[in-house]
């Protein structure tokens, strides 16, 4: 595994990649980032706030996918419950803003409408939740792991659904987007740039992690557990750590997503969203650093364009997805850039 040093797109740590077609893959990565950054800038200049927000949505869905990709793609842990972290992150933003809005306390603590505080709490909450869920779930493997992560996510979903204090099924509106020091978070473009920077950070962290000895151990745990064990390393703590980090990234995306929509509801926690997130990772290319971004672009644009043409767009998404799973395993990035996934 080699750190790739040329054609480093912007200031992010680039993907560790399979050597032969590195030039083309790097080009695709640069193109993806440029596109993601330029489209909303153009939209902004044209005064189309809607398209800036659409780009922000792509970026946040991609960030959630980056989180899942760490567990699913790099770690081989097929989590069917990442919506739980996305939703919990969202609820942290919603609940905190709710208490800040009416000045009430939550277990003796005041709410906050400062995004920095919200992010920290969301990271902490999702980390702890994933630690608990992961500790139990990682005792199982295979189908049991898929099912148990799904069941835990359903547990959180039903809890949010029927707990009346924060709106239950109705969800919780955030009347005014939470604020940031020095930056006007209300402005669509500024908020986009914040989200974009955080997406880059999440991708950089993933790349660094996978380039380190930890990443090597995680890859080994996925490919050949026995060999890892003979090296004297227990896979359980490695996997658990990756699972927790993965959940934290997805949770942060959830907190930002709630602020983007000004609304958080149990829909963010539903198993459909867990499925969609998996679809995004697969569409882009499993275990590829830029896969989630490519997947999110394809998914959200499909939703917007196809959804504008027919209200049954999910039918066609189903067909596309089926085709990708059966015949095009490497996803968009693999198709555009070739090369092998999993660094």
């Amino acid at each position: 595994m080699t750190e790739h040093s040329t054609e480093r797109p912007h200031d992010t740590a680039a993907a560790p990649m399979g050597a032969p077609r590195l030039g083309r893959q790097g080009l695709v990565h640069v193109a993806l980032l440029t596109l993601t950054l330029l489209a909303p800038l153009v939209a902004h200049l044209l005064g189309e706030a809607y398209y800036v927000n659409l780009a922000t949505r792509i970026v946040l869905v991609a960030m959630a996918g980056v989180g899942l990709n760490l567990a699913l793609g790099h770690g081989g842990m097929i989590s069917f419950g990442h919506a739980a972290y996305f939703g919990v992150g969202g609820y942290v933003a919603g609940i905190s803003a709710y208490h800040a809005f009416d000045g009430s306390l939550l277990m003796g603590l005041p709410g906050s409408d400062d995004m920095l505080v919200i992010w920290a709490v969301a990271l902490l909450a999702c980390g702890l939740l994933a630690l608990a869920i992961g500790a139990v779930s990682l005792r199982t493997s295979g189908v049991y792991f898929i099912m148990i992560t799904l069941a835990f996510a359903q547990m959180v979903y039903y809890f949010a659904n029927s707990w009346p204090s924060y709106g239950g099924q109705d969800g919780l509106p955030i009347y005014l987007r939470n604020g940031l020091p020095l930056i006007d978070s209300q402005d669509p473009l500024s908020f986009f740039l914040v989200c974009f920077a955080l997406l880059l950070a999440a991708m950089a962290i993933t790349a660094r992690l996978m380039g380190s000895r930890f990443g090597a151990a995680l890859t080994m745990a996925r490919l050949n557990e026995t060999r890892l064990a003979t090296a004297g390393i227990s896979p359980y703590p490695i996997r658990l750590t990756a699972f927790v980090i993965s959940a934290m990234i997805t949770g942060l995306a959830g907190a930002l997503y709630a602020d983007l929509n000004g609304f958080v509801s149990p829909a963010m926690l539903s198993w459909h969203f867990s499925g969609e997130l998996m679809v995004i990772v697969i569409l882009g290319g499993v275990g590829r650093l830029f896969g989630p971004l490519a997947g999110a672009i394809v998914y959200v644009l499909m939703e917007t364009l196809l959804g504008g043409l027919t209200e049954y767009w999910l039918f066609f998404l189903g067909l596309v997805l089926l085709g990708v799973v059966l015949f095009a395993r490497q996803g968009v990035i693999g198709w555009l850039a070739g090369g092998t996934p999993h660094g």
């Binding site: 097929i78 999910l314 998404l317 189903g318 997805l321 799973v325 395993r329």
Partner: peptide
């Protein structure tokens, strides 16, 4: 993973 995704596609 492939089974989950393909049958998820079938649901849609």
């Amino acid at each position: 993973l492939d089974q989950v995704l393909a049958t998820f596609a079938l649901i849609l």
